[in-house]
């Protein structure tokens, strides 16, 4: 009995350390841990039971396809529709990537500059908060009027949605100045630029990564939403299209793709956090 307990406790501790990384609290499933074969087996088993159970339940209870299609139909649709969906996936990814890159860059630079001048920060912060709290989707119809039905209005919306998120989180990071560490660098003759690159940025890195993660997830939401509002391309647009035709397996196939995108973003930044910010455990 004791031995079993003794074996269990370190396992538990190890997992805690892995999951609580980078202050990404709330997101609680642990990644990158060394899982035993048994654990992997259980995880697969649970997934099979849930998916298989859903399949069976929907089949037995004769739930109509337009309410909830069976998992097998969704996967089939994913394969049969793939050639049609592929260009839309690329468009969505393109809009997300361009919008996020623009927004995140501006947000990051703004955070770095503004935190150096407390007075400027006081003036600018309310507007940033306004941008954070206003759903940028609301602006999309307006942007479409001005920029047409192409990618531009969506890219702008994505930049507006993700930029402020990156900015406020990075600013929180940059505000955590440790005067002793800056003094240390200065005592060895560091220039202002060196203090910025060797002390301030690494110090802010955990919060910067959190900002990038939240910002990119917000960007994904906004991309899809903006595509649903107007235009004729992108996965968001396909969602409205298939739901209008009540083609639910295709509709859910897209949901599946979006879920994979979201999780990939999360995993990527989680990995980045482990790599660049694991010192702050």
């Amino acid at each position: 009995m004791d031995k079993v307990l003794g074996d269990k406790i370190p396992e538990f501790n190890k997992k805690q350390g892995g999951g609580g990384n980078v202050g990404l609290s709330g997101a609680s499933f642990s990644l990158g841990d060394h899982r035993s074969k048994f654990e992997i087996l259980v995880i697969i088993l649970v997934a099979v039971v849930i998916i298989g159970g859903t399949e069976l339940a929907l089949l037995v209870m004769k739930v109509p396809q337009y309410v909830l299609p069976r998992p097998s139909l969704i996967v089939t649709a994913l394969f049969t529709e793939w050639n049609f969906l592929w260009p839309h996936i690329l468009i969505t990814l393109y809009e997300l990537l361009v919008g996020f890159t623009i927004g995140a860059s501006i947000g990051f630079v703004l955070a770095a500059v503004i935190t150096q001048f407390p007075f400027v920060e006081k003036i600018v912060t309310p507007y940033i908060l306004l941008l954070v709290t206003t759903p940028m989707l609301a602006l999309v119809p307006l942007l479409i009027l001005r920029f047409g039905f192409g990618s531009e209005p969506r890219i702008i919306a994505v930049a507006l949605a993700s930029g402020p998120m990156v900015m406020i989180n990075s600013a929180t990071g940059f505000r955590r100045v440790d005067l002793a560490k800056i003094a240390l660098a200065r005592s060895f003759g560091a220039s202002t630029l060196q203090i910025f690159t060797k002390i301030r940025i690494p110090m802010a890195m955990p919060m910067i990564i959190v900002g990038l993660m939240v910002g990119s997830i917000f960007g994904l939401l906004t991309t899809i939403g903006a595509e649903m509002v107007g235009g004729a391309e992108g996965l968001g647009n396909r969602l409205t299209y298939y739901s209008a035709l009540i083609r639910m397996p295709q509709f859910f196939a897209i949901i599946l793709i979006l879920a994979v995108m979201g999780i990939s973003i999360y995993v990527f930044f989680f990995w980045l956090g482990k790599k660049w910010a694991s010192w702050e455990a």
Partner: peptide, 13 residues
């Protein structure tokens, strides 16, 4: 001139 600080002041990263 080199300075040695109260807590070792190493960079944790």
């Amino acid at each position: 001139i080199a300075m040695i600080f109260q807590d070792a002041n190493l960079l944790p990263w």
